[in-house]
């Protein structure tokens, strides 16, 4: 099967031919399959945002290429534009991009740019709004009258309404409190399950990645450090910690237990797995 995204030897350099030349990403090779939910983790400046901006053609690589559904994004002007809609990207703090006088119009901005008909636009706006829990009476309001959490959701709906094959979100929960965070993560999960589309989630929260993703991409110093299933990656928790990255708290507990000599599995990343693992190990000897 053709991967939905394939990066080949992707390199991007900031400030090329100046004295501040820095490679933002170096020689990245990855394949993302249709329907995958990939968590992307790494330090600020490790290249996460730069990488995903190549997947919708916002950035043009200095060398290498990105294949979207098997064809090169940078092939022509049209293919770059098509990539915007195929791989929808929601930036950090997306509420700061709201500008229209009604929420409806704002969500419709993307679909309108796609050149869709009125009926199709309206259907998409309503669908996206329903998905993020923006009810119809809010649609006629000014986006600036919404609460913080509602603004964030309206902005995410603006990207979802383009109904991209790949939905990419850069830190969608930044600055939110636990309730707001859980709500956003919940709706992303639902979107993924419901539409079956590919989702790329850039996050600092290992808990969120552990809870939602099926695969994890770890970037370190502008290059791919690990790429695999969640349990593959988190079972290398110690390496992650050496890169100064966090691991889910529960994973840390299990690393500690292994250090104490308890024969537990290394790939624990949810509380439920942890409980079962402890019960399995303890169960062998009745208390």
């Amino acid at each position: 099967m053709t991967p939905v995204i394939k990066a080949e030897n992707l390199t991007y350099i900031y400030g090329e031919k100046t004295s501040f030349e820095v490679a933002a990403i170096k020689n990245i090779n990855i394949e993302i399959q249709k329907g995958d939910f990939v968590g992307i983790i790494g330090h600020t400046g490790s290249g996460k945002s730069t990488l995903i901006q190549h997947f919708n053609g916002l950035l043009k690589p200095n060398s290498g290429r990105v294949l979207l559904d098997g064809s090169d994004i940078q092939e022509s002007k049209e293919s770059v534009r098509a990539a915007r809609f195929k791989a929808g990207l929601c930036f950090q703090y997306p509420e700061y991009q709201l500008f229209e006088d009604t929420v409806y119009k704002d969500i419709a901005f993307g679909p309108k740019n796609m050149g869709l008909g009125e009926d199709e636009i309206s259907a998409r706006v309503l669908r996206a709004a329903r998905f993020v829990g923006i009810n119809e009476e809010l649609l006629s309001k000014s986006p600036f009258d919404l609460s913080g959490g509602e603004k964030r959701r309206a902005a995410i709906a603006g990207v979802m309404a383009m109904e991209p094959e790949v939905l990419m979100l850069d830190e969608p929960t930044a600055g939110l409190d636990p309730r707001g965070r859980d709500m956003i993560l919940g709706l992303i999960k639902e979107y993924h399950e419901h539409t079956g589309s590919t989702v790329l989630l850039v996050s600092h929260s290992m808990e969120a990645v552990a809870r939602l993703a099926s695969k994890v991409l770890v970037l370190n110093n502008s290059a791919v450090a690990m790429f695999g299933t969640v349990s593959e990656v988190f079972s290398r928790g110690r390496e992650l910690m050496e890169m100064d990255l966090n691991v889910p708290e529960i994973t840390r507990i299990f690393i500690g237990l292994r250090d104490r000599g308890l024969p537990v599995a290394a790939s624990v990343y949810t509380n439920e797995q942890g409980r079962d693992e402890i019960l399995r190990v303890f169960g062998e000897v009745a208390p």
Partner: peptide, 13 residues
């Protein structure tokens, strides 16, 4: 820069 990128990502020309 940030706003321009965000709107371009929504297909702004």
């Amino acid at each position: 820069d940030r706003i321009m990128n965000a709107q371009k990502a929504r297909g702004a020309d």
